[in-house]
Design a protein around this nucleic acid. Structure first.
Length: 335
DNA sequence: CATCCACCGGAAGTGAAGGGAT
DNA sequence: ATCCCTTCACTTCCGGTGGATG
């Protein structure tokens, strides 16, 4: 049933964009000055998850590369690379200037090397930039005339709130591209395109795609996840095409899969906290700390737990209700 | 109303790990 | 082999805040 597995992967970049022409144009206009050797403004892509921000950024930058092969491009996911060092390192790595750089290399050396590498323009896509812990690195990159930035985040206000003053004032100018939730029809078209490219003809019909799109509620990532899960399930059962039954089983499956993936990224002690909160439903900090200390062999300090908890709130896994005294923690409910 | 005090989170310090220089 | 330097996860210390308590 599956012809090309990659197409059903969420970070696949299609060769043709189904919707979002307007957004693509807006972004490519912003980057256009590069063609005449000028420096583009910083571009911001805002919108909820699964609306194609990452995909459109990569697609547009790829297109630019075809017109202008000399431009170097970097994609950095700030969820993983959240320190100044790691971001700078990722950029250097992408332009092949990362040789003999290691932990003991001072950060300023990384920056110096990057500013020396000004023979070719660099376009850096920083995804999930609101996860960045050392936002000064944006100031660093912005200072370099040969580096252009494409910054991706969920909400503008929250992103700017996390910046320090210097970064905020430098980046206030810049182009904003807003992405809205897909409608069902748009999502069906996107899924159809993937099905055409990745599946055997007739593997899934339009009616089922519509069901998938409805269940995904405007989130293409969830939609593609459901599609992938349904097709695999049907394949395992030796079916020729996706049926109602298979689809019904795949929907809840794919919905929790994304969260599960995030939970898996947590380190052991964070997961203990997560499980304790899940078990209690809702729990006060004092009680949570006590339960944690009882649950593990070598407990971390209270302060470290608070760091873990704020991180997990950031990841949208748990939610803190109330302020200071009287606060409780609970899991984020799945609408 | 005054005073606790549970909790939050910033700042600075510690020590392990990794690697260069000598 | 030794010393020195870095980053990074964690700890120690502490000031601020506002609901709880009498």
């Amino acid at each position: 049933m599956i012809v090309d597995d990659r197409v059903l992967h969420e970070d696949f970049v299609p060769s043709e964009v189904v919707h979002r022409h307007e957004e693509v144009n807006h972004l490519s206009e912003t980057l256009e000055p590069l063609l005449s050797d000028a420096r583009p403004e910083t571009a911001f892509l805002f919108g909820p998850t699964g609306v194609g921000k990452t995909c459109i950024a990569r697609y547009t930058v790829d297109q630019l590369c075809e017109q202008l092969p000399s431009v170097r491009t970097v994609y950095v996911n700030c969820w993983q690379e959240y320190t100044r060092f790691r971001v700078l390192y990722s950029v250097l790595e992408a332009i092949d200037r990362a040789f003999d750089i290691h932990r003991s290399t001072p950060k300023d050396e990384l920056f110096r090397r990057l500013s020396d590498a000004d023979d070719q323009p660099i376009v850096a896509i920083l995804d999930e930039v609101d996860q960045l812990e050392e936002t000064e690195v944006l100031y660093d990159l912005h200072r370099l005339p040969h580096v252009s930035l494409v910054l991706i985040a969920n909400r503008e206000e929250e992103l700017f709130a996390s910046f320090d003053d210097r970064v905020r004032s430098r980046l206030r100018a810049g182009t904003r591209v807003q992405f809205d939730r897909y409608g069902t029809d748009e999502l069906v078209a996107i899924l159809e395109e993937r099905a055409v490219q990745g599946l055997e003809p007739g593997a899934i019909d339009e009616r089922h795609l519509r069901t998938v799109a409805d269940a995904a509620a405007g989130d293409a990532r969830v939609g593609i996840g459901i599609l992938r899960s349904a097709v695999r399930r049907a394949d395992r059962r030796g079916l020729e095409s996706v049926t109602d039954d298979v689809l019904a089983e795949s929907i809840p499956d794919a919905r929790t899969a994304i969260r599960r993936k995030t939970v898996e990224q947590l380190i052991e002690h964070q997961r203990v906290l997560y499980d304790l909160i899940a078990e209690a439903g809702e729990i006060e900090p004092g009680e949570l700390y006590a339960a944690y200390e009882a649950a593990v062999d070598d407990p971390k300090t209270n302060r470290t737990l608070r760091n873990y908890l704020t991180k997990m709130v950031h990841y949208d896994l748990i939610e803190a209700v109330g302020e200071r005294r009287g606060r409780t923690y609970r899991l984020v409910d799945d609408e």
